[in-house]
Amino acid sequence: MVSTQTEAEIEEYLGQVPSWLELLSEAAGDHSWGIVRDLELEETELPPREKALVALGAAAAMNCPYCVHFHREEAKLEDVTETELAEATNLAATVRYFSTVLHGSEADLDEFKRETSEIVEYIEEQQATAAGD
């Protein structure tokens, strides 16, 4: 539930107040809208197109049909193609897959971080060499 003032603001942004906002407790309503407004709808460091793709990836990884639907539509508003939507979803699946493998195997986090640092260093060297050609 959101306050009357917040309802007016939501309607200004979205053209309506979605019914699911009634599911929020009174204590969380206005604050929750503020997070969505400030992070997803307002200008931030990430452009809207990138935000939509990140949100879709997170939604897909969480297996949330509500969020997937919303963020797919949001991405389409930003001219994201079906191919790009599929790639974002596949990337999310890949991250979730390897996270499951690492967690389930109880991989050593310190070793993982050390190896990641070595990989990043190697790639940076390769990029510097290619830039110098």
Rank of each mutant, 00 (worst) to 15 (best):
K51R: 02
P18W: 15
Y13F: 12
L85W: 01
I119G: 04
A8D: 12
Q127H: 14
P47T: 08
E106G: 11
P47R: 05
L24P: 02
K51A: 03
Q16E: 13
E50L: 14
A75W: 05
E11W: 07
P65R: 00
V54C: 12
P65L: 10
A8E: 12
R72F: 05
R37M: 02
E50Q: 15
H69Y: 07
T116S: 09
E50V: 14
R72P: 07
E45S: 12
L24Y: 14
A27C: 01
V2W: 03
C64F: 00
T6N: 01
V101E: 07
L56Q: 00
L21I: 09
E42M: 12
M1D: 11
A86N: 13
Y13N: 07
E73A: 12
V101F: 08
A28F: 10
Y122F: 11
L39N: 08
A52M: 05
E78Q: 15
E40F: 14
L77Y: 08
T94M: 06
E115T: 03
C64T: 03
P48H: 00
L39R: 08
A28R: 10
A60R: 05
L46V: 10
D38I: 05
I35E: 06
R96W: 00
I35T: 07
K51S: 06
L46Y: 09
Y97P: 00
D38H: 13
E78C: 14
T129L: 15
G34E: 13
E50H: 10
K113W: 12
L56N: 01
T83P: 03
H103I: 03
Q127D: 05
S25L: 01
F98H: 04
E121R: 14
A131H: 11
Y122T: 14
L14A: 12
K51M: 11
T94F: 05
V54M: 12
R96G: 01
H69R: 13
E84N: 01
R49H: 02
E12K: 15
S19H: 01
Y66L: 06
R37N: 13
F112N: 08
E42D: 15
D110K: 13
V54E: 05
E121L: 04
E22D: 15
L24G: 04
P65V: 12
E12H: 09
M1C: 02
